[in-house]
Design a protein around this nucleic acid. Sequence first.
DNA 1: GTGAAAGCGCTAACAG
DNA 2: CTGTTAGCGCTTTCAC
Lengths: 354, 354
Amino acid sequence: MEEIQGRVRIKDIAEQAGVSVGTVDRVLHGRPNVSEKSRKKVEEVLKQIDYKPNMYASALASNKRYRFLCLLPQHKPGEYWSEVEQGMMKAQSVYNDFNIKIEIFYYDPFDLTTFTSSSQEMMKNSPDGIIINPCSKEVTSLFTEELQEKEIPFIFIDSTIPELHPLAFCAQHPTQSGYFAARILHMADPTSEIGIFRQAVAGLIGSNQQRDREAGFIRYLHKHYPKTIIHKLELPNKKFGRQFDLMDDFFNSHPNMHVGICFNSKVFGIGEYLEKRGIKQFHLLGYEHLDRNKECLRNGSVEFLIAQHPWKQGFDCTKMLIDYLILKKDIKRENYVPIELLTAENIDFYSRTY
Amino acid sequence: MEEIQGRVRIKDIAEQAGVSVGTVDRVLHGRPNVSEKSRKKVEEVLKQIDYKPNMYASALASNKRYRFLCLLPQHKPGEYWSEVEQGMMKAQSVYNDFNIKIEIFYYDPFDLTTFTSSSQEMMKNSPDGIIINPCSKEVTSLFTEELQEKEIPFIFIDSTIPELHPLAFCAQHPTQSGYFAARILHMADPTSEIGIFRQAVAGLIGSNQQRDREAGFIRYLHKHYPKTIIHKLELPNKKFGRQFDLMDDFFNSHPNMHVGICFNSKVFGIGEYLEKRGIKQFHLLGYEHLDRNKECLRNGSVEFLIAQHPWKQGFDCTKMLIDYLILKKDIKRENYVPIELLTAENIDFYSRTY
DNA sequence: GTGAAAGCGCTAACAG
DNA sequence: CTGTTAGCGCTTTCAC
């Protein structure tokens, strides 16, 4: 064919098929108003030629604005979720030329009526695509069913609920992450008493991820080291003063416990306690690359962190919406971020890449 | 200003400054043939307005083809370097719309005259940008000096030589990677005898990375565990039959050595040996996510791998050339890939992301 | 020096 | 149903 130099354009196809560019465009996009005869001719040419549309030209010509809305747990600056937001904002600026706008809405993970009220607010803004951190299946489905109906694509971030059929999700595999944590902690100190530090409000764990990681962790220990004794401490998500007292009790009652884990990013609370009390030789593992956690890693009060790549999750979810909606690419539906071990030796190379 | 809805275009600037789009374009790109007066007017507007050029429109209009050439060590399919190539090819296809073409040239790391002959070949192909895996400083500089002179940007991949002033580099930090390996191995088994398995040709280590990692590894042990005894085994890069004999001798002579490391991707050679000989309880660490290494990780003959992210390195280097040459973005000059620990528990989530 | 105009590959509106 | 045409934002002639 005519691919002598360079690319095949719509115009080339039109010429080959003996129709106009308009018709080719209609066929390519499955738009109406094409006779069976013309469609056949175009499809014939398409079969023989390797046509790759120039998506940048396409986006330029169609000249649309896209609104992506996002629903996340409320949080303070510097916490896990702000890193997710930064990843999204980075994607917005990198793909600025596609005219995308991202807006973020919040809910209180301990009061799920706010999930619903925020989602209603979002629907008023005529979104083109949505990113959601799911809460419980029941409450989340109220929102996603409406989205399905209106054919607005949605992506889950940080955890997923497959039965709700998101367009895609991006998360860390929670049980596998728990296995990995168990294996590392056991290697650090193969004793048989392990402490689990839980952040909760009235016994309620606020995130699916945390709950599932803990389950994986415990399953791994039961299977490989069934003699392990597990001690749990529930730390109320509030005043730090109280937390210290609780930890004093906890450590005093379990003098043979030299290993501990915290399944979310608030491990610095325990690290800072250890540092203050001058407790050395306690092997502590937590999640996430927050500044306060990094500090603990450096001073040795936290020995390991597992990265959850929140920045990457935010960036990738946004990118997926762009790929799907604007560049019309196939996207990967299951996106698990790496389970990456961070220690003092490699933390400087943990990167927010995209 | 007029940014009421949407973006600022060159046309807007032209109107504001009372000149034509041609003149604005000339000013924006520092092209000649602009009067001092016009330049001033345009720069004035530019200062007050937040103009972000649409690089896709720009690339579309200029309609250029770019040739990126790359010089890598020769290798067999399925080895480390083919993963690098795949990352580059992925970048080529993702950014296909920018009309880029990547071609790869090879050299023999144990015969550096081939580095020079290949580089001369490359110069005949009028490259727009170049990616090089550097060999020795002396030989590499012969090439890079010519590139500097002709103002062809070049990027180093896998390792770097700062004195040669590449546009950028992408690599794993070798000494830090050695520290990390030492810390992990010591944790796996805090005994004091460690074996180092070296791949070499006539005593020569074929890569800068390997040499520097080993140095970091040894330095870490000297500092933190000075009593450690290090045994080294040099494995000729050839027949596997011979290698087994050498390893038999090695293991027999050091019965108290239960930990070992191999600083490159050929660790499967040792893993497969352990598997065949039925040696359990030996803690082996190596580099890279090759299929044969993964198999060793699964069957337990290799306990740890450190990922070098070759695919990402290939992708990122190519992307940097695109960012620099086509999208005119600022690029990061020092790009260290993560030092990521892979075990049976997390290897499935090690991803070739981009 | 400068502006006008054509065109990159594609979309969308509009005649017919 | 179909072809033509006018852009999208930018670059690049080419007259003046």
